[in-house]
Design a protein around this nucleic acid. Structure first.
Lengths: 349, 349
DNA sequence: ATTAGCACTCTCGCACCCCGAGTGCTAATA
DNA sequence: TATTAGCACTCGGGGTGCGAGAGTGCTAAT
């Protein structure tokens, strides 16, 4: 039996086993498959096929006299089948109303990024009962629209940065110098005309370049401007939004205490997940990583479904769901995909 | 046996039992008490005393042939003893260095309230291995220091509000009117001179009063100012910071899955905890609520240790630790008390 | 290629029993 | 009168054994 080109019926049986197990976390036996899903054949035949699938590493037996459960490889094939199928059917039962009204809802929250992404992870998790994650737009990649500088309490400056997504950030800078508001306005004007439209990343590069090139800064004002800009742009906002842990403990997959500890550890190690999501922030469409496929040790017996969202055609962030490998992939993919789309729409305007 | 005036020895035995059980979650027997803590008497005597304590509802037996464990009432008495003892000893082993350097650390984070309170809950939880909570200063009670209004994108206004604690908030207002930056400056000046020093709450009251009093607003500018102010001041920032859930699952108290579900549910119901903490935000010093003493159903088998922090002598927020009733109260009280003190110092300057 | 039949295997639940820890009670003691 | 030693009693936990049930793999028949 060739592993690449599985028999159609074999595929169907694999599909049935996975689906059944996802619906109900108990090893599924040959008898059950032949009853529930009507293939025109007896349990004995199913048994043979299942034995083949086991040899291929797609199914496994918890113990000799139990039914089969899918392996990570089995889930992988299942998900691949799902996705090619989805490509053909093109999402028949898409709840357009919900997502368009959800988009409007997000629209109203655009000014409060962290509120918006809390909302996103809450929705993701409560509608899937898995753990929702969101990586907000990286400030480095957002485009600079406008900056304002306001004198405050003598030697401090409030810098307000507005990005193209309509997001506002502010910070106080201890300028140390005694600039007048008039000077600040000139600096802001300079920055706005000079750098409008660039991304924060690019601006930072340009600044570094300028500083190197002109060792002695001829214009005191520009020098201040650059210093201020440097400070104003240094957002270390690498924040990851997570929610839904409190529901996930009710899943039968986590009826074992050690499983809960696993997932707790995984989430505690936010920086690892953050790294993973950063790496995924250049991928296209929905990505699924199943159990051992996962590069993060802590997630080895969990699955993660991710999708990037965009502003125009630039990918600016990631949303994801983490759940057990025995996950409702159909639902998870559906949610992640469409929520990502909503966010893209929100930033697109 | 009078329940109010317990024998000294009886008290000591209760104390010993609770302390032992807190150190090691196993029912403690008479033999053990008589060995470990040197009272000059035999197990049999201890047994008699323990039987008395059980009758008083301070101790309980999981089953006939096991040792005793404390009841909520037992913990209560223990905590009361702790606190009166502490009052006498006045904190002998206070780690001054840590907390003064921690205060400096917080000081540097003053501009980023949410960062600061994340830090606070992280420290609380990681040093106690319980769940750390923090209620940031309620914007309503903070004093207004200065507001700036900046015209943005034609018909929008960016309002930047600076409070006396040095906290900055901003929001975009869709003003809908076509005010010039010059007008905005006048409005801001008016607000700054008129309302500087009042709390947001008070300002809101004044505004409502004025609107009622002068049904037809004579000055269009003032009218705009009030409208803008209303919007600028409406922060619904009732946020509660929580951290440490991921460590708490490793406590032996939560080796039972249903216990984990309990605590998960409790934390999920943030609004309840928020309400509780709001109610506690007028208390003085450290408060301890033990198990069934707790007004929140979901926290009935957990304990919570809280303390308010202040700006000057005005209480502006709350920090807390939630843990099992079998909690290290000494440590928890110590942490909560001193972290609250650090925050107060931070806001005091 | 499929199927019926059958022997085999393994888990799970239940009953049973024994051990040890810790108790409560009683009678003796200071 | 308060304390203590002694002793019978109780209960949970762990180990063992057994039977039922579910599901398999294999073989022989179709």
């Amino acid at each position: 039996m060739n592993r690449k080109t599985l028999d159609l019926r074999t595929k169907q049986i694999l599909f049935a086993v996975v689906q059944s197990y996802i619906g109900n976390p108990e090893p599924v036996g040959s008898r059950f498959v032949s009853r529930k899903y009507e293939f025109g054949c007896s349990p004995a035949t199913i048994r043979n096929v299942m034995a083949d699938l086991e040899e291929l590493g797609l199914l496994a037996q918890p113990h000799t006299s139990a039914g089969r459960i899918p392996t990570d490889k089995g889930y992988r094939m299942y998900v691949d089948m799902l996705q090619s199928e989805e490509a053909a059917h093109n999402n028949p039962d898409f709840d357009k109303d919900f997502f368009s009204s959800y988009t409007s809802k997000l629209e109203t929250m655009k000014n409060d990024l962290s509120g918006m992404f809390s909302e996103v992870t809450n929705t993701l998790s409560s509608m899937s009962s898995y753990i929702g994650l969101a990586l907000p737009p990286k400030p480095d990649r957002t485009t600079f629209n406008r900056i304002d500088l306001i004198k405050y309490r003598g030697d401090h400056i409030v810098a307000i940065l507005v990005t193209d997504e309509g997001v506002i950030k502010n910070r106080i800078i201890g300028a140390g110098s005694n600039l007048e508001q008039k000077d600040l306005n000139r600096i802001a004007d300079y920055l706005n005309t000079e750098y409008g439209g660039y991304t924060i990343d690019e601006i930072r590069d340009i600044l570094i370049y300028r500083i190197k090139k002109e060792k002695v800064l001829w214009d005191n004002l520009i020098s201040s401007a650059i210093k201020i800009c440097e400070q104003a742009l240094s957002f270390s906002d690498e924040d990851l939004f997570v929610s839904g842990f409190y529901d996930v403990v009710n899943l039968p997959d986590f009826s074992d205490i050690s499983r809960i500890k696993d997932i707790a550890r995984a989430i505690k190690e936010k920086h690892l997940i953050l790294k993973l999501m950063n790496e995924l922030s250049n991928t296209e469409g929905v990505q699924v990583m199943i159990g051992s496929e996962n590069p993060i040790e802590e997630l080895r017996n969990l699955s993660i479904v991710t999708s990037t969202y965009k502003e125009g055609d630039r990918k600016i962030g990631v949303v994801a769901l983490i759940g057990p490998t025995r996950m409702n992939y159909t639902g998870a993919i559906y949610m992640v995909e469409n929520i990502a789309r909503c966010i893209s729409m929100t930033f697109g305007r």
